[in-house]
């Protein structure tokens, strides 16, 4: 019941966001058409943070309640976070190529942070695959997920510091200089990507629960 409504809202919002990005958003004076990838890249990156944050919240819930559902939810949120994180790396890389002619730039703090987070959260899956399912695995996953959200600001700070050390350049922040039209498109796009996450999250969760249910039934039959 909830899922179809969410999926419909998601399709509508993503469609609207695409239309706005390509037909409504003003073309950037400096970067031209390619700047439009901003409307994909930044919302995806922010959604990825939201996924990791949600995963850590569910991890904390698990440690408090020892409810297996929270463990599964934490896992699914982080799984989605890694997917959005990989997309952030890809879109960021494309943007770097379009703007500066290189696929990778160490001077883009956020991109570097996503590389660190991507490495960290991929190890989360290695941890889960290497430990047998059960409370021990759920505990460790939860602890690791909590370390992840603390690592995000710590890494960001470290990357900024090293930036200052390696190339003494000023950071250009591209947040507040948006025009109203640009900001509107950005907000719609962000809402679309967040809804996309919520939908994918529910779909994966439903699938995983169904899977567990089927296996339980099969176990009972044998």
């Amino acid at each position: 019941m909830r899922l179809p409504a969410l999926a419909t809202a998601c399709t509508g919002l993503v469609g609207l966001a695409l239309a706005l990005i390509f037909f409504y958003a003003p073309t950037d004076a400096d970067q031209g058409f390619s700047q439009r990838i901003f409307y994909f890249h930044v919302p995806i990156a922010l959604t990825s943070y939201a996924c990791f944050g949600w995963g850590a919240w569910k991890a904390l819930r698990y440690l408090r309640t020892r409810d297996e559902r929270a463990d599964l939810e934490s896992y699914v949120a982080i799984h989605q976070g890694v997917i959005f994180g990989a997309l952030t790396l890809v879109t960021g890389s494309i943007w770097a190529k379009a703007s500066w002619g290189v696929w990778w730039s160490w001077s883009e703090n956020e991109l570097v942070l996503f590389l660190v987070l991507f490495l960290f959260y991929c190890a989360y899956f290695m941890l889960r695959f290497s430990v047998d399912a059960g409370p021990a695995r759920a505990n460790m996953s939860a602890v690791y997920a909590l370390f992840g959200v603390v690592l995000i600001p710590v890494s960001f700070l470290a990357i900024r510091l090293s930036q200052k050390f390696i190339h003494p350049v000023v950071f250009n922040s591209h947040g507040p200089q948006m025009t109203n039209a640009q900001f509107f498109v950005f907000c719609v796009s962000f809402a679309a990507v967040l809804t996309l996450f919520a939908t994918l999250y529910q779909v994966e969760l439903a699938g995983k629960r169904l899977d567990a249910h089927v296996r339980e039934l099969r176990e009972l039959l044998t």
Binding site: D132, A133, G134, A212, R215, E216, E219
Partner: peptide, 14 residues
Amino acid sequence: ISARGLAKRYGDRR
């Protein structure tokens, strides 16, 4: 020790 309906499974393995 007092136990009622005690069960242990690892993932799907009972």
